[in-house]
Each structure stands twice: as C-alpha cells, then as structure tokens.
C-alpha cells in the first residue's frame, strides 16, 4: 500500500486530475485558495490549464464554456464566492452542463469569517440560484474522500449532465490525513452533445433560454425526471454503530467525525446511540431516515449552521419521532463531549 499524508484541499486537485480533469478556472478565496494554488501547480504539469478568472462570476462562466466543449473541468470557492457563482450555476444546470464545483464553506452571512461553517447547505442543496434545478452534492469527511468523492463528482456530473458539488469545510480542507490515490481514469465518456469544433457542431446547441412556455415546461419536466433518476440511484450514506440504536445522531462533513467520537462516548456511558452520515446531501438519504424513524426513539441533528439539513431530516421523519437539533456557528466546532452532554439532556427529557 502506498499512502500520502496530504491536505484535503490538495487531495481534491489530485483526485480531479486522476479523474481526467485538465481545466481549472477559479478565483482565490480563503479557505479554498489552496485548491487553486495546487491546481495552478499541477494542471500545467499534466498538459492542463489553470486560469485565474477576473471574478467568481467569470470563473464559473469559463467553466460553462469549457464544459460546453465536452471536457472535465472544475472550480473551487468558498461561501461568499459561491453566492457570486450562483448565476453560472443556474445557467449550467439549465443548459445541462457537467462540471464540478468545490465549496469549502466558511462562516457567514456576508463576509463572515474564514473558519469552518456549514451555512451553505441551503444554497447548494436547495439551489441558491433561480429556477427548478438540483445539484448533486457530495459531503466528504476525510482527506481520502476529498479525493474519492471529487472523482465520483466528475463521474456523476457526466452521467447526469449536471453540475456536481463537493461541499466541505475549512476543517476537512486543512486537515492532513493519509490518502491512497487510485489509478487515473484513462477512458473518458463520449459527449456527443458537446461542442467539439467539428462538422457535427451545427446540430449542437448549449442553451438555457426557451421562450415557449410549453417547451420550457417540457425541459423542466425532463430535468425533474433526471433528478428522480439520480434520487433512485445515487443516494449514499454511512452508518456507525447504528445496530440496536434508539437515538440516532445525524451530521455530515467534519461534524460526522466529531459525532463518531460522540457515539463512542455515549455508548461507553451505556446509551444506545448510533450515527447516520449523509454522504450525498442531494440526493438526500431520506428513505433511510424514514426506515430508521420506525425503529428508533429520536434523532439529533448537529450542524455548524442555523439548522439547514435538519429541515430535510424533519421532512423525512415527518413528525413520527422527535428530531432534536444542536448547532454551533461562526466557526465554532463543538467537541464530542459537548455534543454528548447535550445528547444526554435530550435523552433524559
């Protein structure tokens, strides 16, 4: 086995290149700049292109152009930058362009700070731009997944002709952990719809405008069918000590790492506690939560936000069982002990 101790942010870039991505367009922002820096270093070495756009708005539109050209391409930013990118994200979803966006979330709203938060769940999972679209959203919780899920994001983006997102936080990005890198993807999918600068281009069109309401509705129906297909096939989650649990903690990203330790602490205290970690935030593992809501007594969602994913958990539980919520914001990351104390309070209620 050959492993590399590496920062999550750098693992993303290496994973992207191994997935066949050769084009990076981005704008610097803390705490995502390391991704741009690594891309600036590595892309030219592998015959690729790194270009620092004049703005977040321009960078996502450069991706729109590159994805139209049928190549695997990516950008990375952080919360305020993602807000700016929403224009291009909506257009990309409308034009069905596969591209990969990395969001290393930071504290908000506004300029906020550069510490880790999870306040972008709504703007990524629910769609922060206009229109009826979904993004495929993957939430890694370790450096290995920063690589693996980035590679998967490219695959899913191509499979569904839709933007795919890695939603991580500064914590996972800054942390160094061992990563075992897989072999590079050598065969990239054919994209007969893309603009290739060849003879068949005259039949191809990348477009999100449609004036006829009937036709635009049909396009929207088509998008929803595609999303339904993704919901059927692509739900991913991980469970930890969930067998026999009657109290289930739910969290993603760095929170899920803390919750893993919390589960151990609570189990040591004799509580029957387990962990559900959504890996795909969209499609959300709602079905699994529905199943669990039959067998467990209650849930506790922990987020580094004002409570965004908790809405999806509550929708799935649909009032059957209590859904407790605990959060920190502004860059505060709770300790396993802090969460365990809170959980005990809920358990004793």
């Amino acid at each position: 086995m050959a492993k590399q101790l590496i920062k999550g942010n750098e693992a993303i870039v290496k994973g992207a290149i191994l997935a066949g991505c050769r084009f990076y367009f981005g704008y610097p922002i803390t705490p995502a700049s390391e991704i741009a820096e690594a891309a600036a270093y590595y892309m030219p070495l592998v015959g690729g292109t790194f270009l620092q756009g004049e703005s977040e708005v321009a960078s996502i539109q450069m991706l729109y152009g590159a994805a139209s050209g049928g190549v695997r391409c990516m950008t990375a930013s952080s919360s305020p930058g993602i807000s700016l990118k929403q224009e291009g994200i909506s257009y990309s979803a409308g034009s069905e362009l596969p591209l990969v966006l990395i969001d290393i979330m930071r504290g908000g709203p506004g300029l906020g700070n550069i510490a880790p938060e999870q306040g972008d769940y709504n703007q990524m999972v629910k769609g922060g731009g206009h229109g009826n679209y979904k993004l495929i959203v993957l939430a890694p919780n370790c450096a290995q997944e920063m690589c693996d899920l980035t590679m998967l994001a490219f695959e899913l983006a191509d499979k569904y002709r839709n933007p795919a997102v890695i939603l991580a936080d500064g914590f996972i990005g800054q942390m160094m952990e061992p990563v075992e890198f897989p072999a590079p993807v050598t065969e990239l999918p054919e994209k007969p719809w893309a603009i290739h600068a060849d003879k068949n281009d005259e039949t191809r069109l990348i477009c999100s405008i449609e004036l006829e309401p009937e036709v635009l509705e049909a396009h929207n129906r088509h998008l929803q069918e595609k999303y339904a297909e993704a919901e059927k096939n692509e739900v991913r989650f991980e469970e930890y000590r969930i067998d026999g649990a009657d109290f289930v903690l739910v969290g993603y990203g760095v929170v899920s790492r803390v919750l893993q330790t919390t589960v151990d602490l609570l189990r040591d205290q004799g509580h029957r506690v387990g962990l559900l970690r959504p890996i795909t935030l969209w499609p959300f593992p709602g079905k699994r939560i529905v199943e669990l809501s039959d067998s467990v007594d209650s849930f506790m969602v922990v987020e580094l936000s004002n409570g965004q994913m908790v809405d999806d958990v509550r929708l799935a539980v649909n009032g059957k069982k209590p859904v407790h919520f605990y959060n920190r914001m502004g860059g505060m990351v709770p300790s396993p002990e802090e969460i365990a104390d809170q959980a005990v309070k809920f358990l004793e209620d």
Partner: peptide, 9 residues
C-alpha cells in the same frame, strides 16, 4: 468568459 473557457479547451 465563456469564450475563454471554450477557446482554452
């Protein structure tokens, strides 16, 4: 910006 993206690819 889009032209930049497609021309570079």
């Amino acid at each position: 910006a889009v032209a930049t993206g497609i021309k570079r690819t």
